[in-house]
Amino acid sequence: MSMVLPASILLVCLIIVPLIAVVVIAFTNWQMGSSRIAFVGLSNFIELLSDRQFQTALFNTLIYVATVAPLTVGIGLAVALLIAGSRIGQNFYRTIYFLPTIATLAAAAVAWQMLLHPTSGLFNQMLRAIDVSGPNWLKDSNWALPTLAMIGVWERIGFNTIFYMAALRDVPQSLMDAAKIDGAGGSWDRFWLVVWPQLGPMTLFLVITAGIHAFQAFETVAILTQGGPQKSTQLLLYTIYQEGFVFFRTSYAATVTVAFLLILLVFSATQFRYVSRRVHYT
């Protein structure tokens, strides 16, 4: 009991109590700095349902998650297979791919801002070298969200790669040998019949965590686009920040936070229920 008491106290103080406070504030009209507070029932949630900015942020967030989460998992698996199949330099490649994960995303966002500059950025200079006119990546409403998604994929691939490489080491060699004896001589046959089922638990973990991480995108939006242009990169977490710390609508920010947590809970439960049915546990 004494060993779990400190962790339990931290859990209550840092997670449960703030969560209860956010839920309570969502049903009031309290504003940051105000001494007056009144219970307003569901009025904040009713306003939320008709808020076009919230609808736009929700749509953009779902598009972002649907792009980033599958790509990071798929590319992470592909990179892990390539590194595991290489005979030399595995430690070097692991380090290179994991660097974006441990780098400060705020600093990396500044570097991406320089790379994506419409005139002096490396990307557009490379395109001009082949007579292609590159877009203004962060100021064009058609390109801004895909560009942020690309940065999100870049930042997350290393994390998934490291976990997949650990899972690949746990694939029993006896199963691979048995597959060869049974006629699965090709690399694809062995991957599909032996390796992929063994990676099921890790894939379930990475799919859920990748989705949650994508929902929490904030730094790149705050630094690179501030939700623009024309709200094309307005994501839910940035909307919460704006409502709470720019417009000082504390109760409404709490309402958006509650909605965000419910969406995240439904997403995670749905992913777990759907993917877990296809997971093979040894």
Rank of each mutant, 00 (worst) to 15 (best):
S2P: 06
Q226N: 05
I15L: 00
A167Y: 06
L237S: 06
V12T: 01
L138P: 01
R273H: 06
V279E: 02
V195N: 05
G33W: 07
I162W: 08
S35Q: 00
M114E: 12
H213N: 07
G152P: 09
I20A: 12
I212A: 06
E155Q: 11
L138G: 04
I9M: 15
L237V: 07
V73K: 02
Q242P: 12
N136H: 04
V207D: 15
P135E: 08
M3N: 10
C13I: 06
M202I: 08
A7K: 07
G186Q: 05
W112D: 03
Y274D: 05
N29K: 02
P229A: 12
T72F: 10
A107G: 10
T220P: 03
V256Y: 07
G158P: 09
K180P: 02
A269M: 12
A166V: 12
H280V: 08
V279M: 01
L99V: 08
T282D: 10
G211P: 03
G211S: 08
L77Y: 01
R128F: 06
D51E: 11
W112A: 10
G158F: 14
I63H: 09
L81R: 10
G74V: 07
I96A: 11
F205K: 01
F27I: 07
A111T: 13
F191V: 12
K139G: 10
Q198L: 11
F260N: 09
P146H: 04
Y281V: 10
A26I: 13
I151K: 02
L71W: 14
G211I: 12
A166I: 09
F54E: 11
Q53I: 07
S120C: 07
M202P: 02
A254E: 07
L10F: 15
W154Y: 00
L11S: 15
S141H: 14
L235I: 08
I20P: 01
L122C: 02
A84E: 10
L127C: 03
D51Q: 10
Y274I: 09
Y164E: 03
A129H: 03
L204D: 12
A259L: 05
Q55V: 15
Q271H: 02
E47F: 09
I263Q: 05
L148Y: 09
V275H: 03
N136A: 00
A109F: 09
I130P: 02
V258R: 13
M150G: 14
V275R: 02
L265G: 14
W30P: 04
L148P: 08
L48P: 12
A222Q: 00
L81M: 14
A217Q: 03
L204Q: 06
A166E: 12
Q173W: 11
F205R: 03
A214L: 04
G74D: 02
C13M: 01
Q216A: 04
F59M: 07
I16W: 05
T255I: 08
Y238R: 00
V221I: 02
I46E: 15
S141D: 14
R36D: 07
L148H: 09
W30M: 05
T101M: 04
L42N: 11
S43V: 08
M165Y: 11
N142H: 07
I96Y: 05
G200P: 11
V279R: 01
V68S: 12
V40N: 04
E47N: 08
A84G: 03
N29W: 05
K231H: 06
R36T: 13
G152L: 15
P146N: 09
M1Y: 14
